[in-house]
Structures are given as structure tokens and as C-alpha cells.
Design a protein around this nucleic acid. Structure first.
Length: 937
RNA sequence: GGGCGCUUAGCUCAGCGGUAGAGCGUCGCCCUUACAAGGCGAGGGUCGUAGGUUCGAUCCCUACAGCGCCCACCA
């Protein structure tokens, strides 16, 4: 083995072998255990969130596979409608062209082409992470099979009356030219203004002042509303106002929606461009007046002067004209919530358009789709981890609106609806099917709907569409390989756990539950593990414009400063931002990013994965875990070196390990494994990683390996042979336990270790998960080793504090103590001498004179290092004094507790007993320490 | 406005009813034959504030303060 751990060659070697050996495919036996990969954007690249999430899934899959489950990690990618279309449109923009210049079909071809080019990027990056995914079953949301599922779902829901088409006010993105759902809109606080505008009453001298943040929309006002009980305006209700600038006559209406105490208490009503106003308009049967075109310019319904103006230019013009007319009463700064399109950053303009919706709110929709999705979680059939996300899920569903599923895009699943020349709608899986199911005869030719479905529509079907639904037989990919077979694969539904971010609970999780429940009658998954969001070391959200993003691949492979700067600033167009980012990177990574390897990255993710909802990723921490990998590597190197010539040893007589140390490490291993199993159940990967880290470093390496050295080199051949064997056994076992977290290094080491134990398996993943129950425990050995550790630590402390060079051999005396101490000191003499670098321990008979010495106390035994020329008497006295002080204060605390009658009466007996034991133990030590202090004079 | 988090060592975080922990950082001493990506040792916290429950509270309850996230129609 190399002297230190070099991840790169190991990673590439093993992933290639695993994939070639087809080791990730479902075994076909055992209990089904399925995880659905949240399909990433097909043309995307891997970011830290993916890497974290996929590490979690991979740990679960590898663990369950080793436990003998029939695992399936269903992978694939999403066509990501808007996101992908936008990338290609940007590419066209660089050629000074738009998608309309190309036309629909050539454009879609071009997107497919881009998908072919970049579609493997992210899946290859996933391979670098080491994911044990069944690549033979990789799917894409626009696969033939998945598209069949989309059409079938649409048609069935339509025929059940659960999908409808309607002219509704929707969130319109004027830049992308499409409707988006409520979820795709973010409300952002912006600095704006509140303008007060005077609307004159048509008959008479009175007027009403309305307040608005969007004065330009007054061109589409159809009324002014006041509160029905507002005394100030009672007499005006029902009167008519002359709408300034356009001169239209509009009524004053009364509606509860109005807050008397806000602003002037008068609200202008623009039903065509505001959701609240739309509702009020409907209540009062006022026809909306649209004033914008789909690209947010003023249309022909407005006075000629404003027509063709962009909405913000129109605002300026309107304000100027109001000002000139003396109707602008007040302008004041105002913070407001602006709806912004998530995808384009454009300010959303509510628009009246024809769109398709899934009915989630009528009695029928609720009963068929919404309620079952709620019940699945309320009943506990689906559990969220951490549990409090349940509230988020249920509250959203309880307040849900109908889902707008049509998008005015070209990339996606085209809506399977056709229109005849009279505008009648015909829905079917294809045109023929639509005609077959027609209830009236089509007028003239049929033309398919131009729109496509929301990306999340197909994602909602992922839990069953990837398993072959709705095909009756095997589903093949373009190379003719079978990728799914519903009749067989439905055993994987429900999947075991969905690992995903909270940001898509609404977008995806809830909708999968809706669709899967409806079409299969089953829940899509039993548990939903909501993973934390990855942030930078300071807790800031990672964003390209801040320059604090990390590319997981850069952490794995490392990257020099200059390439990192180039890469991070490449896509930044604003010079100031670019400069800022460059500065930050030069400051944060003056040496670039060191290569830490996949295993260390994965271990870091595991170690950070508590139930906290954010994790702050600190490279420092990752470097620490690389050190852990190196530690493991070197421990293995030590073990292998020692078994190389001397043989692999054998168990002690009667299959009982010969030494206390062995029995102790096995006991600790058993405890660790028990703990790890529990942490897998509760998804506490942080505790899991920590338990294994501590076992490997603090117990196996720090103590067992050290203890093995005197045993291996000692005179007792049986002890040496048994120790060699135990070194190997514990190593092999812990490698298996670590494999789900750090697959590469464990495989590499395991391949060298396993043969020495006569284990025949192709790889570590094919070995069973180590069962705690199969490992013997020995509590007595644990007590012995604890004693030994105390003695050694005592000596080391004296050495360190008295500045005795570690290499210098010194005498060791033991005093007082009991028979157990004497027996143990004999048993561990060789180990003590070797590890503490002391001469053979000598017992001092009680009553005899002792040389002045520095002391440590273990129970009632004093461990003495004679002072002669080594130790400063004053310093040692001070040290003892301090120690005594500490113990005295501990004793005081115990005494206070035990002196409290209420404590003794009310606390559980075992707690009281424990407290008594403590006071006794402290007392023993205190006596010994005081005696020692006294001996020093 | 509703909901959900967080506040523990210099930093990042575990712990969540009975002796305050880890990693990183800091400070000593060591290139000791697995590992200097290492070893040994040390220092460092009145567990956000104030009440309450309890024999006992970092942990449970209430209020408050600060930070953060999600949802929501206040023009």
C-alpha cells in the first residue's frame, strides 16, 4: 500500500469496475427497497445540494443492499421545461435569433440536440460521487414511456372532470411569454411608491381619493370600492365617478374586502390585472377590462396616447398627466411586495388567458385528489422526517388553489387536446382517440393545442411512470433494453423513502402523492426525509453572484486558484459583480481548493446531516475528514504489514480472543454497530458518522493498535496470533460498516484485507452488513482496559505537564490500591512499559518510605513518577493542589444534593445510588491525592 | 397576518430532565519503527434574557429579545 491515501486513482478504478460488474442492479430477492432520485435537470450540472442529497440516498441504498434488501435506486433526469428551453433560447439569442425565427419543430429539435450534448454531464458527475444507482433503468421524463403516462393521466383526469380549460386570471411572465403556477412566483419586497389619485364624482363637486402602487392600471379600472360601513363614503355608494385620463364612467361599490383604516379607505378595482380585484369584479358582476398585451405593453383598450407603451413607461406618462390635471394628491415612498417570476426575474403581470387546470378545490377535485393526498399524511401512511414538515405539507394542501398546468412553451409534453374550427375541445391520447371519444362532431379540421404541460406534471408521475406504468408489457429504451416492467416492478411501489429538499414539498412531493394515490391507489413512498439546504461556511446561501458557490467536483479533484477564478466569473456579466466575486475567491482560496476526494466529501456530508434545516459547508471540516480517510488507510497499512510475514493469526483457545484488548475492542465494535443501526433508522447520519469516526480513530487506532504492538512483539505467541486475527477481523468489519459512507477507500482496503480472512466475495458491497449480535461482548475486559487507559493517561499527563521528554525512560512506582490493581498491573506491565516508556512498575509496600514523586491517582492506587532530577517539587504541589480543589468542589456538589431531603425522597433510587457512588469514588481519589500532597511535605 | 426553525467553547455544530461534548482553531511538548493529513497534553462555556414546573432544568412550559425560512390578497 502507498504510504498515504490517494483518492483519485482508487475512485476511477472502482467505479468503472462496479459499473462493469453490474453490481448496482436490483438483486431480485429480498424485501423491496426503492429510492426515487429527484430527477435533476437533464442539462444541468451537479451542485452541492445534489451531492449532499445523493450521498444520503447512496448511503441508504448501499446499507440496505448489504442488509439483503432487494434495492432499486431509480435514477433519471427531468426535461425541466422552462429552464431548458431558456438555455437554448439564450444560445439562439447569441446568434441574434429567437425560437420564432426557427419555428416550433426545428426549435424542439434543437433542444433535443442540446439534451443529447449535455444530458450526460450530470449523470457522469453522479458517477464521480460513487452513487450505487441502477443505470440500466435510467429514465428521462420525455421518454416515450413516460410521455405515454403523461398523456394517459391527462386524458383520464380530463374524462373524470378533474382537468378543465378556462379563461382565468393567471400569473403571466411577460418575458418568457407563459403562464406560471402560483409556486413559480416569488414575492419580493421592493421600494416603491404609494400614489393617491383623485377620482371626481361625475355629478357634483365631490371626489374620491384612491391609493395605489400601480397607477398605470387605472386605465383598466372598472370601479372604486369602499367598505360598506364606512361612514365617510356612505352617500357615494352607487354613484358614478369619471375615471381620469380615459373618462370612462365607473361606479362606487361597497365590498367587505376594503379595509377602512388603510390609506384613504378607497380601492380602485382593476379586475383584469389584479387577483383581488378580479374576485371583487366577479362578486359585483363587473366585466374586466384588459389593458396589456402579453408582452406587458398597453393595448387598444386604453386611450390612444398610452397604447404601445411598456407598462412602466405608461406609469410615468399616467403620473405626469395626473399631475398636470391636478389629480395627483400625494406621492410617498412605500415598500411593497412585488410578484416576480422565479425563472426570469420578470415582474409578473396577472393576465386573463385560456389555460388548463387541475381541479383541486371543487367538491369533486377535493374528494378525488386533494383529500387522499392529505389523508395519506394525516393517517401516518406517509411520514415526514423531521416530523414538523407535516404541518407545512398539510397546511398548504388545505389552502390549495387549482393547479395551472399549461405553459406557453414549446419544450415539454404537448397537451393532448385538439380544437375544431368552432373552438370545440377534443381530448385523447392522440387525435384518433380524441375523435373516438368525441361527443359532438368536429367542425372542420382538428388542430392540437399549442401549449405544453408544466414540467411538474410529468414529475408527479415519477413514482409509477418509471416503473413501467401504464404499459402492459416490458418498456424498452432506445437501445432496445428493458428498463421497466410494471407488472413486475410494481413491487417497488411504495418506495421506502424520498430524500428531497423542503423547497419542492409543494412542487413535487405533494403532487406525487396526489397522482400516485389516484392512479395506483398506493402512496408513492413511506417516508419523506427532508434534507438540509447546503450553505457556505458562514451560513450564506450559495449563489453565483456572491461567488460563494462550491462545485462538488472541485472539492473532489481540487482546483488551482486561477482556473477557479476564471470558472467562477465566466458567466457573470456585470463588471462590478465580477470584480467582487474575483476578490472574494482570491481571499477565500488563496491556494485554490485542495483535492479532498469523494470519500472525504461524502463523509463530510454525512457528518453535517443532523436534523438542522441548513448545513454550513466548511472546507476545513472536509479536510478533517480527508485526514480521517488517511488515518483509516494507515491503520490498514499497519495491520497488513503485521500480518504479511507473521500470518493472519487465529482466534484464541475456544474461539475466545487471547487478550483483554481484543475482547475490549470487540465489545466496543459491537456497541458502535448497534448505535449505527439505530442512526440509520432515524436518519441521523451525523451521529452515525461520528460513532464510526470515534470508533476508528479514538478506539481502534489510538488504543487497540497501540495495545497490539506490545502483544505482537511480545513473548506470548498465542496472544500475538490472536491479536493479528482480531486486528484483521475488526478492520474488515468496520470497513463494511463504513462502506455506505465512504465506498471507494473501503472497497480498496477491503480487497486486500478480505482474502487474508479467507473471505470470498467479489466486493465489499456483496458482503453482508455487520450484525452487532454476531460480535461477542465482554464487560469485564472493558473495565480492565478502562483501568489501563487511566494509568496511561495519568503517566502521560505527568510527563506533559512536567516537561519530561516523551522519549525519556523513567521509573514507575505504584502505591496503595487493592488486589485488582495489583493483578492488573501485572497483566498490563508490558503494555505500560511500552506505551508509557517507563521502567517495569514497582509496588511500594505500605508503610515504607517513598521517594518524592509526581502522582496520578487511579481509584485508590497512586501512580508515582519519582521526582529525582525530573520534576519541580513546587510545580507538582501546585498541580496536586489544583486537582484536589477540583475534586473537592465535585464532592461539595454531591453533598449538597444528598443533603437535600427532597432529593433523596423524590429522585429515583438509582439516581441517588449513583450519586452516592460518585461521592465515594471522589472520596477515594481525594484521600490518595491528599496523602500524596502530604508526602511531598 | 399565519406557520416553522434557530440562539450551547473563538468558529461550525451535537446533546435535550440527573457529572456540559465533538470537529476545526488556539497554546505547550514531540519527525516515538501505520499515519506530521500524525502523536501526547493544556486552556476555553454562569448552555440568548426573565419567569414558571420539578427534589433537580442547557433540556419541559410561558413571555421577551435577536436571527432565519416558508406561506398569505392589504390597495
Amino acid at each position: 500500500m502507498e504510504k498515504s491515501f490517494e483518492p483519485r486513482p482508487i475512485e476511477s478504478k472502482w467505479y468503472a469496475r462496479w459499473e462493469a460488474g453490474d453490481v448496482f442492479r436490483s438483486s431480485g430477492h429480498g424485501e423491496p427497497y426503492c429510492i426515487l432520485l429527484p430527477p435533476p435537470n437533464v442539462t444541468g450540472t451537479l451542485h452541492m445540494g445534489h451531492a449532499f442529497q445523493q450521498t444520503v440516498m447512496d448511503m441508504l441504498i448501499r446499507y440496505q443492499r448489504m442488509r439483503g434488501m432487494n434495492t432499486l435506486w431509480q435514477v433519471g433526469t427531468d426535461h425541466a421545461g422552462i429552464a431548458t428551453q431558456k438555455i437554448v433560447e439564450n444560445q439562439l439569442a447569441a446568434e441574434q435569433r429567437t425560437r420564432h425565427d426557427l419555428g416550433r419543430e426545428p426549435f424542439v429539435d434543437r433542444v433535443w440536440q442540446w439534451k443529447e450534448e449535455s444530458g450526460s454531464t450530470i449523470t457522469n458527475q453522479m458517477r464521480r460521487l460513487g452513487v450505487a444507482a441502477d443505470w440500466s433503468r435510467e429514465r428521462f421524463t420525455m421518454d416515450e414511456g413516460l410521455s405515454d403516462a403523461v398523456r394517459k393521466v391527462f386524458v383520464e383526469w380530463y374524462r373524470a372532470g378533474l382537468i378543465y380549460r378556462g379563461n382565468r386570471l393567471v400569473n403571466w411572465d411577460p418575458v418568457l411569454g407563459t403562464a406560471v403556477s402560483d409556486l413559480e412566483v416569488n414575492n419580493v419586497e421592493r421600494d416603491g411608491h404609494m400614489w393617491s389619485i383623485r377620482y371626481p364624482v361625475t355629478d357634483g363637486d365631490e371626489s374620491i381619493v384612491v391609493a395605489t402602487t400601480r397607477p398605470e392600471t387605472m386605465l383598466g379600472d372598472v370601479a372604486v370600492a369602499v367598505h360598506p360601513e364606512d361612514e365617510r363614503y356612505q352617500h357615494l355608494i352607487g354613484k358614478t365617478l369619471t375615471l381620469p385620463l380615459s373618462g370612462r364612467q365607473i361606479p362606487v361599490i361597497a365590498d367587505d374586502y376594503v379595509d377602512k383604516d388603510f390609506g384613504t379607505g378607497c380601492v380602485k378595482i382593476t379586475p383584469a390585472h389584479d387577483f383581488n380585484d378580479y374576485a371583487i369584479g366577479q362578486r359585483h358582476k363587473l366585466a374586466p377590462i384588459e389593458i396589456f398585451t402579453l408582452d406587458a405593453k398597453v393595448n387598444a383598450n386604453a386611450p390612444a396616447k398610452y397604447q404601445g407603451m411598456d407598462r412602466y413607461d405608461a406609469r410615468k406618462a399616467v403620473l405626469a398627466d395626473l399631475e398636470a390635471a391636478g389629480l395627483l394628491v400625494e406621492t410617498k415612498p412605500h415598500k411593497l411586495q412585488v410578484p416576480v417570476s422565479q425563472r426570469s426575474d420578470a415582474v409578473i403581470e396577472p393576465m386573463l388567458t385560456d389555460q388548463w387546470f387541475v381541479d383541486l378545490t371543487s367538491d369533486k377535485g377535493r374528494q378525488a385528489i386533494t383529500e387522499p393526498a392529505l389523508d395519506a399524511v394525516r393517517s401516518g401512511e406517509i411520514k415526514f422526517v423531521p416530523e414538523n414538515w407535516t404541518t407545512t405539507y398539510t397546511q398548504w394542501l388545505e389552502n390549495i388553489q387549482d393547479w395551472c398546468i399549461s405553459r406557453q412553451l414549446w419544450w415539454g409534453h404537448r397537451i393532448p387536446a385538439w380544437y375544431d374550427e368552432a373552438g370545440n375541445i377534443f381530448v385523447g391520447e392522440d387525435e384518433a382517440d380524441a375523435r373516438k371519444h368525441a361527443t359532438i362532431a368536429p367542425v372542420g379540421a382538428l388542430k392540437q393545442d399549442d401549449d405544453v404541460l408544466d414540467t411538474w406534471f410529468s414529475s408527479a408521475l415519477w413514482p409509477f411512470s418509471t416503473l413501467g406504468w401504464p404499459a402492459n408489457g416490458p418498456v424498452k429504451n432506445e437501445r432496445g433494453e428493458v428498463v421497466a416492467h410494471w407488472e413486475i416492478d410494481k413491487i417497488f411501489l411504495p418506495s421506502a423513502v424520498l430524500v428531497t429538499g423542503f423547497d419542492i414539498i409543494f412542487f413535487w412531493v405533494a403532487r406525487m402523492v396526489m397522482a400516485t394515490k389516484y392512479f395506483t391507489g398506493k402512496v408513492p413512498f413511506r417516508e419523506v426525509y427532508i434534507n438540509a439546504i447546503v450553505r457556505d461556511a458562514e451560513g450564506q446561501k450559495m449563489s453565483k453572484s456572491k461567488g460563494n458557490t462550491l462545485d462538488p467536483l472541485d472539492l473532489i479533484d481540487g482546483i488551482e486558484l486561477e482556473p477557479l477564478v476564471t470558472k467562477s466569473t465566466k458567466s457573470l456579466l456585470i463588471p462590478q459583480v465580477r470584480e467582487k466575486v474575483e476578490k472574494r475567491i482570491r481571499k477565500d482560496y488563496p491556494q485554490g481548493i485542495p483535492a479532498i476526494g469523494t470519500d472525504a466529501l461524502r463523509f463530510t456530508f454525512a457528518a453535517l446531516a443532523s436534523y438542522s434545516r441548513t448545513i454550513n459547508f466548511d472546507i476545513k471540516r472536509a479536510e478533517g475528514y480527508k485526514a480521517f480517510c488517511n488515518k483509516l488507510w494507515n491503520a490498514a497499512r499497519f495491520v497488513l504489514m503485521n500480518v504479511e510475514e507473521a500470518g493472519t493469526g487465529e482466534r484464541g483457545t475456544g474461539n475466545v480472543p487471547a487478550t483483554e484488548a481484543e475482547r475490549w475492542i470487540l465489545t466496543r465494535l459491537k456497541q458502535t454497530l448497534t448505535e449505527v443501526e439505530q442512526h440509520f433508522v432515524t436518519y441521523r447520519f451525523d451521529l452515525l458518522a461520528q460513532a464510526l469516526y470515534e470508533f476508528v480513530w479514538n478506539e481502534y487506532c489510538d488504543w487497540f493498535l497501540e495495545l497490539s504492538k506490545p502483544a505482537l512483539n511480545g513473548d506470548d505467541a498465542a496472544a500475538a496470533a490472536s491479536t493479528r486475527h482480531t486486528l484483521l477481523v475488526v478492520l474488515e468489519t468496520v470497513l463494511r460498516a463504513l462502506h455506505p459512507i465512504i465506498p471507494f477507500i473501503t472497497e480498496e482496503i477491503w480487497q486486500s484485507v478480505a482474502p487474508r480472512l479467507g473471505i470470498e466475495a467479489d466486493g465489499i458491497l456483496q458482503r453482508p452488513w455487520p450484525k452487532a449480535s454476531e460480535i461477542p461482548a465482554d464487560e469485564a475486559a472493558t473495565a480492565e482496559i478502562e483501568w489501563f487507559k487511566n494509568v496511561l493517561s495519568g503517566i502521560r499527563r505527568i510527563r506533559a505537564e512536567m516537561n519530561i521528554p516523551p522519549g525519556k525512560a523513567i521509573p514507575l512506582l505504584l502505591a496503595d490500591g487493592d488486589a485488582t490493581d495489583r493483578a492488573r498491573s501485572g497483566k498490563f506491565a508490558a503494555q505500560i512499559c511500552f506505551l508509557a516508556r517507563v521502567d517495569a512498575p514497582q509496588w511500594i509496600a505500605s508503610g515504607t518510605d517513598e521517594p518524592a514523586a509526581a502522582a496520578a491517582v487511579v481509584g485508590s492506587m497512586r501512580v508515582l513518577i519519582p521526582l529525582a532530577g525530573l520534576i519541580d517539587l513546587g510545580a507538582e504541589k501546585a498541580r496536586l493542589g489544583k486537582e484536589i480543589g477540583k475534586i473537592e468542589s465535585e464532592i461539595k456538589k454531591c453533598e449538597n444534593k444528598l443533603g437535600n431531603a427532597n432529593f433523596v425522597a423524590n429522585a429515583p433510587a438509582e439516581v441517588v445510588a449513583q450519586e452516592r457512588q460518585r461521592i465515594a469514588d471522589w472520596g477515594t481519589q481525594l484521600t490518595a491525592l491528599r496523602e500524596q500532597l502530604q508526602k511531598l511535605g
